Simulated assay, not measured.
Amino acid sequence: MSLDNKPVYTGGCQCGAVRFRIEGALLNASICHCRMCQKAFGNFYAPLATAPEGGLSWTRGEPKLFRSSNHVSRGFCAECGTPLTYEAPDGVALAIGAFDHPEEIAPTIQFGVEGRLPYVDAIPALPARVTEDDMEAAAFLASVESCQHPDHDTENWPREKRP
């Protein structure tokens, strides 16, 4: 919480070149299934939440913009490609997955459902396993050293590269 009791959210791209801070309640947490959003996110749909007017500030870098239509620009990190924003005349929405705590932002509506891929609703029924249970990949997984920015603000980034 901020000093004036407004909720505060932070987040950014996976490499840490772009970071944001939002003060105030998020609006319209949603999922959009339209083809433009699928392509912009390279995913089945785009999960987005709108920042309150005047509540968004860029605390490190800023997204590069791609004009995806005559009404909308989409922001992304020019360094790592992380999708970050959907910028329309009615406001700026941010990718829920780019927030430091995406688990706090549950979508409340779906848009563009005519574009929903036919298998999306069946995903929860697919067999599931935790990463650590993949014994064939255990050695590989044990050797992974993440280069992603942590889910919190940092004073200096990127961290020093290892030899």
Rank of each mutant, 00 (worst) to 15 (best):
V18L: 07
F66I: 02
N43W: 13
R74F: 01
G54Y: 03
G81E: 01
P52V: 00
F20Y: 03
S146G: 03
F76N: 05
A122L: 14
G12N: 01
R19Y: 05
P124Q: 00
S30G: 01
T82H: 06
T50V: 06
R162F: 08
L126E: 12
I22E: 04
I22C: 02
A106V: 03
Q110V: 09
C77M: 08
G97A: 04
S73Q: 15
R162C: 10
G11E: 10
A139G: 10
M36V: 12
F111L: 07
E114P: 07
E53V: 09
G24Y: 07
W157N: 03
D153M: 05
R159E: 13
E136L: 06
D100I: 01
L56P: 00
E23S: 12
F140Q: 11
H149Q: 09
G91Y: 01
L3A: 10
P127K: 03
K64W: 14
M1A: 11
D90R: 08
V18P: 07
A128E: 15
A51R: 05
T85Y: 12
R159I: 13
V72P: 02
L141V: 04
T50A: 04
D90Y: 09
E103W: 00
S69Q: 06
L94K: 02
T50P: 04
A138N: 07
H152L: 06
C34W: 00
A93F: 05
G24Q: 05
R67A: 06
A128P: 15
K39D: 10
H152A: 08
M36E: 15
H149P: 14
M36Y: 11
P63M: 04
D121H: 07
Q148P: 12
P150H: 09
L126F: 12
A51L: 09
P127L: 10
A139C: 09
A49S: 08
V113M: 11
R19E: 00
T82E: 01
L141S: 06
D121Y: 00
R21G: 08
P150V: 09
P47H: 02
C34H: 03
A46E: 08
V144C: 05
C34M: 01
N70T: 14
A46F: 05
A122E: 13
N70P: 13
C77W: 07
N43G: 09
D134E: 11
A93S: 00
S57I: 07
V130S: 15
A139I: 11
P118W: 03
M135V: 15
V18M: 02
R129N: 02
L65H: 14
A95R: 11
G12Y: 02
N156K: 13
V120R: 06
Q110P: 14
I109A: 15
A46I: 08
C34V: 01
S68C: 07
A95I: 12
P150C: 10
P163S: 04
